[in-house]
Write a protein that binds this DNA or RNA. Sequence first.
DNA 1: CATGAATGAGGTTTCATTCAT
DNA 2: TATGAATGAAACCTCATTCAT
Lengths: 206, 206, 206, 206
Amino acid sequence: MQERSRRTQAALIRATTELVAEAGYHGATTKAIAERAGVSEGTIYRHFPDKKALFAAAVMAGQRDVTEWMEQLPGRAGSAPVVELLAETLTQLSRLREAVLPLEEASPHVMRPVEDLSREELVDALRSTGGPPLLLADFLAAEQRLGRLRSDLDPARTAVMLLAAFLGVQTSPLAGSKGLDEDDVQLFAELFCAGLVTGRDPAASS
Amino acid sequence: MQERSRRTQAALIRATTELVAEAGYHGATTKAIAERAGVSEGTIYRHFPDKKALFAAAVMAGQRDVTEWMEQLPGRAGSAPVVELLAETLTQLSRLREAVLPLEEASPHVMRPVEDLSREELVDALRSTGGPPLLLADFLAAEQRLGRLRSDLDPARTAVMLLAAFLGVQTSPLAGSKGLDEDDVQLFAELFCAGLVTGRDPAASS
Amino acid sequence: MQERSRRTQAALIRATTELVAEAGYHGATTKAIAERAGVSEGTIYRHFPDKKALFAAAVMAGQRDVTEWMEQLPGRAGSAPVVELLAETLTQLSRLREAVLPLEEASPHVMRPVEDLSREELVDALRSTGGPPLLLADFLAAEQRLGRLRSDLDPARTAVMLLAAFLGVQTSPLAGSKGLDEDDVQLFAELFCAGLVTGRDPAASS
Amino acid sequence: MQERSRRTQAALIRATTELVAEAGYHGATTKAIAERAGVSEGTIYRHFPDKKALFAAAVMAGQRDVTEWMEQLPGRAGSAPVVELLAETLTQLSRLREAVLPLEEASPHVMRPVEDLSREELVDALRSTGGPPLLLADFLAAEQRLGRLRSDLDPARTAVMLLAAFLGVQTSPLAGSKGLDEDDVQLFAELFCAGLVTGRDPAASS
DNA sequence: CATGAATGAGGTTTCATTCAT
DNA sequence: TATGAATGAAACCTCATTCAT
C-alpha cells in the first residue's frame, strides 16, 4: 500500500533529523534511526538505496519547510523597515532550521567520505532555483529597487553571506550549546543590516 | 628522551590537523594519523590517553597560533579605521584558521557523541582567558573607550557574534568549496562593521 | 487458474536458470528472480515452499530437456561408429546444458549448507531412472552386446565417469570462460573413447 | 613479531580451506573462519585486505602444494608406462587437491560476484608458468619426443583437457559425495590414456 | 619508549521469508 | 491469489584501544 509506505518514509526522515540534532552524526546510526522510527533496520533499505540517500532526503525535507516559509519574503519588500523584515526572517529561520541545521552543517566535513559525489549534488540542490538563498536575494533586489538598500551590493552574493553568517552564529561552538534567543537574533540583524541599508530606510536613523 | 617525545607529539598533532582538513573527520582515523606521523598506532596512546585528547590538543594547538597573532590587536586600537583593522584581522584569521577550522567545526556535531563531557571542556577552553574571542572583545572595548564604537554594545557578546559569523561564512557549504578570497573578507568586514562604528570613526563616512 | 499458475511457475524456473547462468549463484536472489519473472517476491512462495525447492525444480527442468534428447540414444547403438555417436551426443549435451550447468555445478558446494538433506535428494533424482547417466549406460551396454565396446567395463560406472569428465571440461576455469567449440568436443570424444572401443568398431582403426 | 604473524596467516588459510571443503562456500564465513583459526574476526583484516584476498591466498597455497609434487613429473617421462605414470599422478592429485578443489571449482560460478576482477587474475595465476597444467604439458611433450605419445596432439591443450576432465570426475555430484577411490582413478587413467599412447608404449598392448 | 598484532563492539547492507492488505 | 512492505538474522568490514614483545 502506498499510504503505509509514505508513512514509513516520513517516520524515517523525521527520525533521522531528530537523531542528528540530538546525538550528532555519529548517533544517527541505522540502528538508532530504525528504532526511533519504529521499524526494523532492513526496512530502511526498502525506501532508500543507502544511508546517504536517507540523509539527503532528510536534508531536502528540512529545506522544503524553510523554503516554504521564505517564499513569501520577496513579496513583502517595502512593507516594513528592512531591519525589521530581516529580523523576522532570521527569527523564523532560527526556529525552522534548528532541527535541520546540524544535518546541513555536518555535510561538508562529516559526510564527505560517506558521500563523495553526492555532496556536490546536495549543495547544488541547496543553492538551486527556489532555495532560501535565491529567495533572500530576490528580496534584497526588490529592496534595492525601492532604494532602501545600497545599490552597489550584489544581491546573490550578499544573500549567501548573510545566510552563511547567520548559520555560523547559530551553530558555532563559541555561542554555547543553548542556541540563540530573540535578543541575539535582533542584535545580529541590527549589526549586519546597518551595512546594507541606505538613508531612505526608516529604521536607518535609529 | 623528552626531545624525541615532543617531536612525536608535534608530528601527531600536525598529522591530525592535516588529515581532518584533507579527508574530513572520517579520514582522520588513528591508523591514518599514525601513518602520516610516521609512528605506529600504539604510540599514539603513549602520548595521549585517547583519540579525544589528541583532537583536543590539535584544536588547542591551532588555537594557540591564532591567539599569538591576535595578541597584538588590542594594543592597535585607534591606530587605523576600525573597519580596516577588522578587515586585516579577519584576513589573518581566514589564513591561520584554514587548517584548524574543520577541526573546530567538526567538534560540535561530530565529536559530541564520542566525547560528551569533553565537548564542554573544549568549548570552555576556547572561550577561556586569552583566547581570540576575549582578545577581540578587549579590542572592541578599547575602541569603545576611544568613542569610535557604539557604546551600547556588549564587547564580549559582539566579539563572539562577529567571530562566529565569520567562521560561518568561511565554512558554509553555501559558499562553495573554494573558500573566501580577499574581496569576500573585505565585503564581510564592511557590512558587519557598519553596524558597529559611530560617526567618529574616520571610515564611517564612506 | 491452473493455467496461469503453470505459466508463473515456468517463468520462475526460466528466470532462475537464466540468472544463475548470467550472474552466478549470487546473482540469483529471490528479488532478481521475481523481477525477471515479472512477479512479486511473495509470489515465489505461492509456488515453491522455499528457494531451495525452486532451485531443485529448475535443475530438474533442465535435466528433463537433456533427458528428452538422450532418450533416442540407446536405440541408435550400432548405427554409426561409437566415437561418432558419442561425439554427436556430447555436442548436443554441451548445447543443451550450457544454461543448466552452472545450476548443477553450483549445487554441491554452494547449496549444500542451504540444503543439507536436499542435496542428496537432488543427486539421487539426477541419477534415478531415466536420467542421462542411465540412458548413456543403456547405450554403452547395447554397444557391448554388439561387441564394439570393451566387455570388462561396467556400463553404469563408465557412463557416470564419461559424463562427469565432460561436464568437468565444459565448466573448468582452466578452459577459460569461452566454453568449448566443436573441435574441443571432437578431441574429447576421440581421446576418451579410444579407451572404450574394441577392434571391432570401424572407427577404432583410425 | 613476524613469526606470530606468519602463524596466524597460515592458520587463517588452513581454516578457510578446511571450511570450504566441509561446509561449502556459504559455510566459509569470516566469522567461522576466524573461529576455526582461533583468532577474532578483525584479525583477518590485519592480514588480508578483504575476504576475497584470503580466498585467493588459500587457493594459491593449495596450488603450491600440488605444484611442488608435480614438478618432478616431466623428469620422469619414459621411466614407466605412460598409463602408470598418469595414474600415479592423478592419484596424488586426487589426494592433494581434495581440500583445495572446492575452492577452485567454486570460483567460476560462485565467487564471481564477490571477486569480479580478481577472478580473471586468479585463473590467470592458475594457468601461469609453472602451474600443474604446464608441468603436465611438459611431461606429455617429453613423452611425445620419446615416441610414446601421439604426435598429433597439442600437449598444452591435452593437458588442460585431461586435468579438467579429472577434476570434473572428482567433483561431480554424479559421482556421489564419497569421492573417488583407487579403482576409479585407475579406470579413468586407463580410459583416457588409451587415446593418448602409441603402440610403442609398453602398456598399450594390455 | 615503541611496536604492531590482536581484539571485539558496532557499522552498513543483503536477503530469504512472513504477513497484512 | 497476488502483492510488496516488513522483518531480523547474518554477512563483511572498520576502528579505537590493549598488550605481549
